[in-house]
Simulated scan of single mutants.
Amino acid sequence: MSDKSQRFLIDNTHIRGELVQLDEAWQALQATATYPAPIRKVLGEALAAISLLATTLKFKGSLILQINASAPVHMLVVQATSENTVRGLARWNAEIADDASYNDLFQEGRIIITVEPSDGGERYQSIVALSGESLADSLKSYFEQSEQLQTRLWLASNDQKAAGLLLQRLPNSDDSLVEEDNESWNRTLALSDTISAEELLTLDAETLLHRLYHEEDVRVFAQEAVTFKCQCSQEKVEAMIHSLGIKEARDIIEKQGSIEIDCEFCNTHYAVNHLDIERLFNQQSAPSTNSIH
Results as ranks from 00 to 15, higher is better:
A90S: 14
I261L: 15
E147M: 09
A69I: 00
L170E: 12
I10K: 02
R250T: 11
T289A: 06
I39D: 02
A28W: 02
H274K: 14
G132K: 00
L63G: 02
K140N: 12
S184E: 09
N290G: 12
H274N: 10
A271R: 15
L149V: 01
D175Y: 12
E238W: 07
I253R: 02
V218H: 00
I246W: 01
S101W: 00
I112N: 09
D159G: 12
K255E: 14
L57I: 02
R16H: 00
L280R: 06
A33F: 08
E224C: 06
Y213L: 03
S192P: 06
C263L: 04
D23Q: 13
H74M: 08
I246T: 10
D3A: 09
V20Y: 01
S288I: 10
E108G: 13
F281T: 04
Q79C: 03
G109E: 07
H274M: 02
I252E: 03
Q148K: 13
F8D: 03
Q79A: 09
L203W: 03
K4P: 00
P72Y: 07
N158H: 10
A33L: 01
A80Q: 05
S258A: 15
Q234Y: 08
G17R: 04
A28S: 13
V115C: 11
S176C: 00
R152Y: 07
N12Q: 13
Q284I: 06
E95S: 10
T268K: 15
E260S: 13
Q283I: 05
L65M: 11
N282K: 10
A71Q: 11
L177I: 04
Q231F: 12
I15T: 02
P36D: 01
E144S: 14
L200P: 00
D193S: 14
R40N: 12
Q223K: 13
L149K: 11
D181C: 07
F281V: 01
L53V: 03
G61W: 02
A48R: 08
W185C: 09
N273V: 09
Q148I: 01
R87Y: 07
S192M: 08
G120E: 10
S5A: 12
M240R: 11
E224K: 14
N182L: 13
A33P: 02
E264A: 11
A100G: 09
D99I: 06
I246K: 15
L9G: 02
L53G: 03
E215Q: 13
Q150E: 14
A80I: 07
A162D: 04
T81R: 09
L170M: 15
E144P: 00
I253W: 06
R123A: 08
T56V: 10
G44D: 04
A162E: 04
S157I: 08
A205M: 08
I277F: 06
V128I: 14
E215N: 12
Q168V: 12
L275W: 08
C263Y: 03
